[in-house]
Design a protein around this nucleic acid. Sequence first.
DNA 1: AATCGCGCCCAAACCGCTTTGGATGCTGCA
DNA 2: TGCAGCATCCAAAGCGGTTTGGGCGCGATT
Lengths: 362, 362
Amino acid sequence: MNLKELASKLGLSPTTVSRALNGYPEVNEATRERVMDAAKRHNYRPNARAIRLATGRAMAVGHVIPIATRHEIVNPVFADFIAGAGETYSRNDYDMVLSVVPDDQEEDTYRSLKSKGNVDGVIVHAPKMDDPRIGLLHDIGLPFVVHGRATGSALPYSWVDVNNRRAFLRATEFLLDLGHRRIGLVNGLEFMDFAIRRRAGFVDAHAARGLVPDPEIMVSDEMTEVAGYRAARRMLVLPNPPTAFLVASMISGMGVRRAIDERGLRMGRDISVIIHDDDLSYMKNGEDVPIFTATRSSVREAGRQAAEMLLDLIAHPGSPPQQRLLEAELIIGQSTGPAPQTSLSQPLPAQPLPAQPLPHSP
Amino acid sequence: MNLKELASKLGLSPTTVSRALNGYPEVNEATRERVMDAAKRHNYRPNARAIRLATGRAMAVGHVIPIATRHEIVNPVFADFIAGAGETYSRNDYDMVLSVVPDDQEEDTYRSLKSKGNVDGVIVHAPKMDDPRIGLLHDIGLPFVVHGRATGSALPYSWVDVNNRRAFLRATEFLLDLGHRRIGLVNGLEFMDFAIRRRAGFVDAHAARGLVPDPEIMVSDEMTEVAGYRAARRMLVLPNPPTAFLVASMISGMGVRRAIDERGLRMGRDISVIIHDDDLSYMKNGEDVPIFTATRSSVREAGRQAAEMLLDLIAHPGSPPQQRLLEAELIIGQSTGPAPQTSLSQPLPAQPLPAQPLPHSP
DNA sequence: AATCGCGCCCAAACCGCTTTGGATGCTGCA
DNA sequence: TGCAGCATCCAAAGCGGTTTGGGCGCGATT
């Protein structure tokens, strides 16, 4: 059932039917109702391909996911962001198209998306310092919103980001207020923009009290359970181990907790831990009471907002770039407490460590 | 730069240019090269919207992701599956469109995808017993491949699945061979097809040796860290606790491990654990040596194969349904060992449990 | 010499919508 | 009465490709 058939069935021209369905004023209300009714009865749904060609709009938004042989973007955070953005798209009758491409083809994918007209705009994921994608998208004139920011980028651009610096600043202050003076930082990879900002917040909070954090207990690595475990493990066997950890993610935090457990220490009593919680739908930080004290910010909500911003940009071409900075809240859980009075610098009566290679901090 | 412009620049008709670029035989080889060359020089890329309308094909595959207020499909496994499927699509110049919709709109979404012509086929995720989507898609004539199977479905349909029953059968046998007689099952939600099959494998392995597993130590719940922790915790305080656990996922396994650590037990020595490992890209089961003994099967590879199957189905309409059963391999890690000689039924000199509500098995 | 077949190319129809540019008839006002 | 103005509808031209149905020239066949 297409427009022409429906029109002839109604004894009307395709023009009028099209206008009736799309709410144009130059059609009699009685006629419109008749058309609407017939459309529903015959289950008519206009062909999306024809609409796209006729209007010149793709009614679709792209997300490019580079696949590397090394560490991948395809991470749990990404999935939840996509879910949030997807909600917005389907509410607005937009399609979400995902392009999973080898990372050396990412640039060409954006060019192709634009020139083939597959999408009206894109979301840029996981920005790095001086991210080249911003200049590229600006050049080819494809509307975009960055999830995060790209420090060092000269051009203005639209973004939605969490105030990562402030979040880690506050978390660090909270630990300092509890009396902790040696805080281990288990950060994400510090060529990622968000990790850079978190580190800055961590350092600044120290600096504000005349302290300088020890580089020995600041680690930058992938946000996996194993990496978190290794980082914490290494720090805990130092002569002067940290009394608290600030950790980049829930998953890393589980690794940190494992290292703590393994040493026979008790999280929240012997060692405090604060994580960043992206509020993932399938990885809740506890149910009624939070397990970890955390800086929390819903990445799903960020997805919704980024998508809304992009649709707005698409609807109003030539409008200036928009920005939105979301604040993380500090959730107090069971993993933090006052710094222990007794020095932990003496070897603990803990279980011997199982034989495993001890990686060094990168 | 569109076809017409390119044609006039070459002094050819659009017909010939189109044919030259698409490899049709009725064009002189010299002419073809001239066209190819000009297309490259002018960076001509045919408009996807026009192609779709003209050919009547969407050149796109849909994935519908229902969003529930309760437990969500948007899980880590899903993300990796998507990544695998996405690789296949982009290699074949297909788009992947994700529809994130409230779960009560899932059916209408499939209808709409079909009648509006957005996609040429869909992948069905997370099949349940007697899944109604199979009948629906069959009725509306939209090609589809199911990731998993739907026990009880009468119609034949295409699917890609892991041999979940066999995987858990072998894992259970392995534990029984090690002398374990009380094995706790920490399963996924048992209205999901894969969880039903895993349970069957677990039960069948017992039955083959004349054993009947104790329902008291078989739990079905979400595959989260917290749920895994709670399930294991509850079983470990039983008068007759299990000496081994068979666990549905890596994340659940981390919760189980936490419960074990908390009791002061040592995984692999006091308690054995086998998990199912979906081989997620960002959640590796160790690096050189596996942490957990595991039944491993790459969900990403399943995504690739499901996508390939679907594209084949689309390319050959009317061809019979295809099926593909992937076998999981049993990876021996550090989390399993012989059943302890001494009975664990006596209360252990472990740390007291922190006050927390003890949920009962559903 | 007439015809056939083939290689090569083109004009035009078509895909299913939107949108421009009228056409028609009726009302209201000078 | 004449005409502008408005409400309502339609024919046709697009969007940018693909595909059908020839057309033309030339060597080979009869």
